[in-house]
């Protein structure tokens, strides 16, 4: 009796389906953005803040949701409620800072100039009548 041959089309189809499912599974379960390997736009803290002040809509298009490499002067450091390190970079604004949440603890001194790579989430809320300026948020930051 002759053995029935499996058609190459079927083999190709099976391979294709398995590959598609594996790719789908990979993308479905993919973790957060890998900041260290992401391509980043380079910008100074002051320039970034100025862009949002001048044209928030355009700046949001250019920077929000993007990985940025921001260089600036450290005005203050702190911890957030989850114990993550926060680094605040000076801007041209009186009060508004680049509010950076670090991935890991970082030893940074006030007055130092640093370059941080992180995901920009956009500009927060200002309450001018109370003298509160808006911050620009960067999260999952790494020290360069």
């Amino acid at each position: 009796m002759r053995k029935k041959k499996i058609s190459p089309i079927i083999i190709a189809l099976v391979i294709f389906i398995v590959a598609a499912a594996a790719t789908g599974f990979y993308y479905f379960n993919k973790g957060p953005v890998n900041i260290s390997s992401a391509v980043a736009q380079k910008i100074s803290a002051e320039q970034l803040y100025r862009s949002f002040q001048q044209d928030t809509i355009q700046a949001s298009k250019n920077y929000s949701g993007k990985v940025l490499e921001v260089t600036g002067l450290v005005t203050r450091t702190s911890k957030n409620q989850q114990g993550q390190t926060l680094i605040f970079l000076k801007t041209t604004d009186n009060g508004g800072v680049i509010n950076c949440t670090m991935q890991k603890d970082a030893e940074v001194l006030q007055g130092n100039t640093v370059t941080l790579k992180g995901l920009c989430n956009g500009i927060g809320e200002a309450v001018p009548e109370l003298g509160i300026a808006a911050d620009i948020y960067l999260s999952q930051c790494l020290l360069k």
Binding site: G31, S64, G65, N99, G124, I132, Y137, S139
Partner: peptide
């Protein structure tokens, strides 16, 4: 972890502002 919130103590006025892009999920999708 990037919520701006203010309480005006004498009047009790309260405000929260949240950037939608600041929400972090376990999966990027």
């Amino acid at each position: 972890n990037e919520v701006t919130s203010i309480i005006n103590v004498p009047t009790g006025e309260l405000q929260f502002s949240v950037l939608i892009k600041s929400f972090r999920f376990k999966k990027s999708l």
